[in-house]
């Protein structure tokens, strides 16, 4: 890994303490997010706050299984996010398909399509686990190791090819989208 300049180190340490997450519940793991956000666990303590649109967000939470229809939107949304951006995969579904390993519509591993910085195991992960994952991500960002966005740029061709393999086309044209 390249040496970071001082400015990059400062920026990384700031980034680690202000994570704006995209307000997008892609799956059932989102059910444990409200408790994490609210009084009991209060993740705003760590500077994690929900944001409305991908342009403003730093982290994308893939909260569980992704079917192909959602994956298209996830990829599109991920590409709309500003660098540096991080992805957290929730639950076993994002790791290896989890309980839906043989489903005809859900994908089996997320990092095949977009780079993932942190996975959280479990179905569904408890709020404590989510907070732990956030802390781990923060640590990674501080050290400059959360480089999923760089990997996506470097291996863009590979990711695109994987996406096309599973999805056919990412930017879908159908009667809804004309």
């Amino acid at each position: 890994m390249k040496e970071r300049t001082m400015w990059e180190q400062i920026a990384d340490s700031l980034r680690s303490r202000s994570l704006w997450m995209l307000h997008y519940c892609t799956g059932c793991g989102a059910m444990e997010l409200p408790p994490t956000m609210t009084a009991r666990f209060d993740m705003e303590r760590f500077g994690v706050a929900p944001m409305a649109t991908p342009r403003q967000a730093d982290i994308m939470l893939i909260t569980g299984y992704l079917n192909t229809k959602t994956l298209r939107r996830v990829i599109y949304t991920y590409e709309q996010m500003a660098d540096p951006k991080y992805v957290i995969g929730f639950g076993s579904c994002t790791i290896n398909g989890g309980i839906y390993f043989d489903s005809y519509s859900t994908i089996n591993r997320l990092d095949y399509y977009i780079p993932v910085d942190v996975y959280i195991a479990g179905c569904m992960p408890r709020p404590e686990a989510i907070l732990e994952a956030f802390n781990y991500l923060m640590e990674k960002i501080r050290k400059g190791e959360a480089d999923g966005w760089k990997r996506y740029k470097e291996n863009y061709e590979w990711y695109k090819q994987n996406q096309i393999r599973s999805l056919g086309e990412v930017y879908v044209h159908d009667e809804f989208h004309e």
């Binding site: 290896n96 398909g97 043989d102 489903s103 859900t106 591993r109 095949y112 994987n162 393999r165």
Partner: peptide, 15 residues
């Protein structure tokens, strides 16, 4: 007669 497992294996690579 549709086998989702086969479809999934073909389309969505596993870890």
């Amino acid at each position: 007669d549709f086998d989702p497992s086969k479809y999934s294996k073909e389309k969505f690579p596993d870890r």
